[in-house]
C-alpha cells in the first residue's frame, strides 16, 4: 500500500488550548462577504496557507468503491492510492486553490466519509454543495445503474442550481471496462449534465473536471450582466482527453 501519511509543515489542530483550524480561517473571514464568496479585491488566506479570492464547496457522490477518494487525492496531492479497496477513513475535506483566468478559486472538496456505503449520506452533505461530482466506475455496471438513484437523492436535497457533473472513473482499465463511453454520454444527455471519463490512476481529465467546475462556479458568481453564459459542456469537450491519449 502506497498510502503514506505525514504532517505537512503547516500547523496541526491538536494543540489542546487552541483551535488553529478556526483561527486560521480568521484571515479568510475578515475579507469575506455576505454571499459566501470572498471579495476579489481582497485576497484571503486559506487553511493551507494559500491566498484565494473566491471559495466554493464541491462534493463527491457515487457508489462505494468508484474512486471518489482516489480522485480527490489525485487532484489534491497528485498521488494515487493503490490497493484493492480503500474505504474512506480520515478524509473529511481538502482544499485546493486553482488559478482561473487570473483569479484564485478555492475549492473545498468533501468526501462522503463512507456514509454512501449503505446509502446513509446526511442531507447536509448535499445541501451545502455548490457543485457535485457524480462518479461511477466504468468497470462496475451497478455503480452506473445507481446514478439515477443518486440523482434522485441530489435533486431532493441539494440546492436547485447546484452544478452537477457526471464522471466515469477508472477509464484506464480498458480490459475490465463494462460501461461504454457512449452509455455514459447518453445518460448524461438524458439528465442534462456534462460528462467525461476520468482516471484517478493515470490522472486523465482529473484536473479538467475540477477546473471546469471551478470555471463554471466562478463564472456564475461574478457574471457581468451582459456576459455570455459559460458553456461548461463545450469547454469540457474542447479540453477533454480521450482514453489512452496521454497522461495529463
Amino acid at each position: 500500500m502506497s498510502r503514506k501519511k505525514a504532517l505537512k509543515g503547516k500547523g496541526s489542530s491538536n494543540t489542546p488550548n487552541s483551535s488553529p483550524s478556526a483561527e486560521k480561517e480568521k484571515g479568510k473571514k475578515v475579507s469575506s462577504q455576505a454571499n459566501g464568496v470572498v471579495h476579489p479585491s481582497r485576497p484571503s488566506l486559506s487553511n493551507s496557507g494559500e491566498f484565494y479570492d473566491i471559495a466554493f464547496k464541491v462534493m463527491l457522490v457515487g457508489d462505494s468503491g468508484v474512486g471518489k477518494t482516489c480522485l480527490l487525492v489525485r487532484f489534491k496531492d497528485g498521488a494515487f492510492l493503490a490497493g484493492s479497496f480503500i474505504s474512506t477513513v480520515g478524509i473529511d475535506f481538502r482544499n485546493k486553490v486553482l488559478s482561473i483566468d487570473s483569479m484564485r478559486v478555492k475549492l473545498q472538496i468533501w468526501d462522503t466519509a463512507g456514509q454512501e456505503r449503505f446509502r446513509s449520506v446526511t442531507h447536509a452533505y448535499y445541501r451545502d454543495a455548490h457543485a457535485l461530482l457524480l462518479l461511477y466506475d466504468v468497470t462496475n455496471k451497478s455503480s452506473f445503474d445507481n446514478i439515477q438513484a443518486w440523482l434522485t437523492e441530489i435533486h431532493e436535497f441539494a440546492q436547485q442550481n447546484v452544478v452537477i457533473m457526471l464522471l466515469g472513473n477508472k477509464a484506464d482499465a480498458t480490459h475490465e471496462r463494462i460501461v461504454k463511453r457512449e452509455e455514459g454520454e447518453k445518460l448524461a444527455k438524458e439528465f442534462g449534465v456534462p460528462f467525461m471519463e476520468t482516471s484517478a490512476k493515470t490522472g486523465l481529465n482529473v484536473e479538467l473536471a475540477f477546473t471546469a467546475v471551478a470555471k463554471e462556479l466562478k463564472h456564475r458568481e461574478l457574471k457581468e450582466p451582459n456576459e455570455p453564459k459559460f458553456q461548461l459542456q463545450e469547454y469540457v469537450n474542447k479540453e477533454m482527453k480521450g482514453v489512452g491519449c496521454c497522461r495529463s
Partner: peptide
Amino acid sequence: PPAPNPEDIIYDGDAPQAEGRGFDES
C-alpha cells in the same frame, strides 16, 4: 479530542504503485 485538520493529512504518491492491482474489485 480535537479532530486533526484535514489539511494535515497528505497522501504521498512516491511509493511504488501496485500495477494492475489498483482497480481489482477484490
